[in-house]
Nucleic acid binder design. Structure first.
Lengths: 153, 153
DNA sequence: CTAAACTCGTGCGTATACACACGGTTTTTA
DNA sequence: TAAAAACCGTGTGTATACGCACGAGTTTAG
């Protein structure tokens, strides 16, 4: 029973459980778990470009675009022309979007409490730390491995 | 800097990093990260019903069905009639499916090694343990919330 | 033993997640 | 400064992830 071989599956199980739980809770407010992540990221740094936003979530630029189209239709975010870069568009929360974020964040407290309900404060800190290191290891490897990203044309 | 509020995002970041990394690595073998999870689950328990399979992954029955349709077309799994239950179908790996699983599992060792490359054996054990507890807490809550349809009436 | 309740798989709809190619824009290079 | 390279957002295609409603089969209640 190598714990090293269980780690990927346990990580997957934990994330999917969180995602399901969040989707159910947030549905009352008409947003998905991932849309909440996007709103939260914008709440921390307005006027990001779409790519910056994607990098911080973290997520894929084309995924983020699809989400922005939906959120813009609902009036939660606005997309404007970038002041100096004609290619880019800046994204920001609308007043409605900010209000929605705060509502959902509050509702999410119940989930965050549940998550750590069987953990001590010390264990929670430890868990966050370990997750960060795992992410770092996987991300470094990806960047090194895929570093030959080229546009051949 | 409340670590309790960072936990969901760190969990998400770690899982998505793992998923991306796995998809890239496993693409060489023509399977996705999630398809590998399905194959691995079958390798541990053949002749499961689709629902049992979904419960063990864990995943949604309708998601699993869509995956099975694709995997069956590629000859990696077979679906047969259940011996006693006319509603259910049993699922099993084909010989090709088993071989594929073993190949991909071997290739996946590199990823599993990377994941724990900055962790001690003790920390890895701890991480698995903490993730399990988080999953448990989130799952219990979901069941309690939606489970009042069964025993108590 | 029959009718209601439950369960299984199916099929459809919406939202991610990401790859990839494309056109337009900026930056770098020669 | 003109050509090349790199970058941004868009649009399309495939694969999850899950909810929901449906038909068929099974279990339970009366």
């Amino acid at each position: 029973m190598e714990t090293r071989e269980r780690l990927p599956l346990e990580l997957r199980a934990a994330y999917l459980a969180l995602h399901r739980r969040s989707d159910i809770e947030f549905a009352k407010f008409g947003v998905t778990a991932d849309q909440f992540v996007l709103l939260a990221t914008l709440a921390r740094g307005q006027a990001l470009t779409q790519r910056e936003l994607a990098a911080r979530m973290p997520s894929d630029p084309s995924t983020v675009r699809a989400m922005l189209v939906l959120l813009e239709e609902r009036g939660l975010v606005s997309r404007n022309t970038h002041p100096t870069d004609g290619r880019a568009r800046t994204v920001a929360l609308t007043a409605l979007g900010l209000r929605k974020f705060r509502q959902v964040f509050k509702a999410g407290q119940a989930i965050r409490d549940e998550m750590v309900s069987s953990l001590t404060a010390e264990e929670t800190r430890s868990l966050v730390k370990l997750l960060r290191r795992v992410t770092q290891s996987l991300t470094d490897a990806t960047i090194v491995g895929a570093g030959s990203t080229s546009n051949i044309h």
